[in-house]
Amino acid sequence: MSDAHDHDLRHHGDVDAEPGMEDFAVNVRGTRPPEWLRAILVDSLGRVGSYPSAEHDRAVREVVAARHGRHPDEVLLLAGAAEGFAMLPRLVRRRAAVIHPSFTEPEFALREAGVPTTRVILSRPYVLAAATVPEDADVVVVGNPTNPTSVLHPRRDVLAMRRPGRLVVVDEAFADTTPGEPESLAGESYPDVLVLRSLTKSFALAGLRCGYALGHPDVLARLTRGRAHWPLGTLQLDAVAACSSPEAVRRVERDAAVIADERAYLIDRLATVGVRPAARPSSSFVLVDVPDAERVRRGLRARGVAVRRCDTFPGLGDQLRLAVRDRGAVDRLVTAWHALL
């Protein structure tokens, strides 16, 4: 466990990529929303002259609730999952614990608010059952599947962290990248489990900021205390509804199978340059061990390929994170890597 402030918690993959580069740094599928979604957003533009209404919010929450078999009162719409992380300090009474290596935004938000926060750092292969969480932690944050390790934790291990008076927050931003979402808790109601979901990754909506939280109404009420009025705009509301529809869910499920195939190809090709996964990957990105990782990252960048550095993640160092891409992009990555060798 650690309470140190020795990492750039606000470094994210978007700063590792520039326009025109082969982008393996950002975990977004595609560079633009699919055509069917763009048509919905274009139609929504005709309604942005009016303020978003409570009725609109309720209608969208009903769509999300139906997608997960929950009650609409268990749904909180968010301007991206990152907004949910920014709200977490409102839930902590004593101490927060963040399971690492993981997405660093939750810890950043907690520390910025002055919340006592403990890092629980897992050693490889990043098994959650091995985590030692402080007993006084009344909020525990864990990713599943975890960014950047791509490890999918068994749901039983996530639920095993529950304690009286403790809230377990599960970051499921990449849950829909795993076929069938086998370890997701989004469809189950627990009074002490809060699930955060993102729609920006699978639908290429990073610039629109769309997500939601699933939890007990009392927890959601604490989360939104003091929140600004009209927190989501009309385009965001319509996008959340569209991306939560049965047809959209089926599209994402099909893409999850494509991701699994592309990930296997990426791993096979990386082996030709002597690079292997640091843990068993389950999501749309792969964490790989790379001796002298910073030199390799800079060398690939000089050849027009962007990859995500990992020394900004607590618990990591000589690793790189690679987004899963199509075979042509992977071949170009490996060609650039061979040139470094």
Rank of each mutant, 00 (worst) to 15 (best):
M1L: 13
S2R: 12
A4R: 14
D6K: 02
D8Q: 08
H12S: 07
P19F: 03
F24N: 10
A25C: 07
A25H: 04
V28E: 12
R29P: 00
T31L: 11
E35Q: 14
R38H: 08
V42H: 10
V42L: 13
L45R: 15
G46M: 09
S53F: 03
A54M: 03
A54F: 00
E55P: 00
D57Q: 09
D57G: 01
A59I: 00
R61F: 05
E62T: 10
A65L: 09
A66N: 01
A66E: 12
R70I: 10
R70Q: 12
L76R: 12
L76P: 06
G80Y: 01
A82E: 12
A86M: 00
A86S: 15
P89C: 04
R94Q: 15
R94G: 07
A96Y: 12
A96D: 11
A97P: 10
P101Q: 02
E105L: 14
P106S: 07
F108S: 13
A109S: 14
R111Y: 05
G114R: 13
G114I: 10
P116Q: 07
P125F: 06
V127M: 03
L128S: 05
E135R: 14
D136Y: 06
A137V: 10
V139A: 12
N144W: 03
P148D: 01
S150G: 09
V151N: 05
V151Q: 07
P154A: 01
D157E: 15
V158Q: 07
A160D: 08
M161N: 01
R162N: 07
V168W: 02
A173Q: 12
F174P: 00
A175P: 03
A175L: 09
D176E: 15
T178Y: 10
T178C: 14
P182S: 04
S184Q: 06
A186K: 09
E188N: 00
S189L: 11
Y190W: 15
P191M: 02
R197E: 11
R197A: 13
R197M: 13
S202D: 13
L205T: 13
A206D: 13
R209D: 13
A213I: 06
H216F: 02
V219Q: 06
V219C: 05
L220I: 15
R222L: 15
R227A: 13
A228Q: 10
A228T: 14
L232W: 08
L235P: 07
Q236G: 11
Q236F: 02
D238A: 11
V240R: 00
S245M: 06
E247K: 08
A248Q: 03
R251Q: 14
V252C: 07
E253W: 00
D255R: 15
I259C: 12
I267R: 01
D268I: 00
L270W: 05
A271I: 03
T272Y: 00
V273K: 07
V286L: 10
V290I: 13
P291Y: 10
D292Q: 14
D292I: 01
E294T: 14
R295V: 14
L300H: 03
R301E: 07
G304Q: 02
G304P: 04
R308S: 04
F313M: 03
F313S: 03
G317L: 06
R321C: 13
V324E: 04
D326A: 02
D326L: 03
G328Y: 01
A329N: 04
D331K: 07
D331G: 12
R332N: 04
L333Y: 06
T335N: 02
H338C: 02
